[in-house]
Design a protein around this nucleic acid. Structure first.
Lengths: 131, 131
DNA sequence: CAGTATCCACTGGGATACTG
DNA sequence: CAGTATCCCAGTGGATACTG
């Protein structure tokens, strides 16, 4: 967490630049952060990923893994054994996202109540003047 | 940035819980983080938001603002003047997202090259054995 | 200026079933 | 077990035009 001032462009441009959008795009797929997080402790086979994550379809998991692989966040390792084995592991790049992912997850736990309270208030307000 | 250990649930559950998904959902709309970031220095009128952001449609902006308002991240303030004026400002909750948003933007600038390099490598690999 | 109404195209992802 | 093929649906968001 070095100083932002070294890296970031002029304030006004920030987030208009598509480079700034990269992490958002990478994390905006539902399962991307989940899978990255699931791999944080080491390589896993797809079957173990599915078990650990729970509720993810094989199709969606393989789509997710291909996306992550395409963006250089995970590596696919095949071992010629009997039976053949496949493992996915985080790259260094993928590991560099663990911090941000953790922070976002943490934010949810810290502020979840406030968000839900706001939503309920809005819902009440809507109902108040129902035509 | 207090310690995560205090707030987060058991490791294995993390990110399966929908509370952990909250920030991801809030940031996975293309324009949500952009608008929140644009409001970081103070309230803005829609027209100024559009000017500062650039390239956002009025429809999309108002959808985005309604979403943000619904989730308690921004407040809508109307001033009975001539002509009537509308401003949007971050709530405290919205401000609490500035840190994470900044980090994600920063990540993009730090690691954008690596992501693009990975993509190009994948593309090359695909082309190599084109049937 | 603020906001809405249509229309449209794309993507992500859930359900199910099927190959290597 | 790993991965793909279909089918389908909902949500975003772009383009355009219109109302208070």
């Amino acid at each position: 967490m070095t100083e932002m001032s070294e890296v970031l462009p002029a304030d006004s441009e920030f987030l208009a630049d598509c480079r700034a959008r990269l992490a958002f795009d990478l994390l905006s797929n539902t399962w991307n952060p989940v899978v990255v997080w699931a791999l944080r402790k080491g390589p896993l086979r797809p079957i173990d990923l599915r078990r650990q994550i729970g509720g993810i379809r094989t199709k969606v998991l393989s789509e997710t893994l291909r996306r992550l692989q395409y963006n250089g966040l995970v590596d696919r390792c095949t071992y010629r054994e009997a039976p053949p084995r496949v493992e996915y592991r985080l790259t260094e790049l993928g590991e560099s996202l663990l911090g941000p992912i953790g922070m976002l997850g943490e934010w949810g736990f810290r502020h979840g109540d406030e968000v839900m309270a706001a939503q309920e208030e809005q819902d009440r307000a809507d109902g108040t003047c129902a035509s």
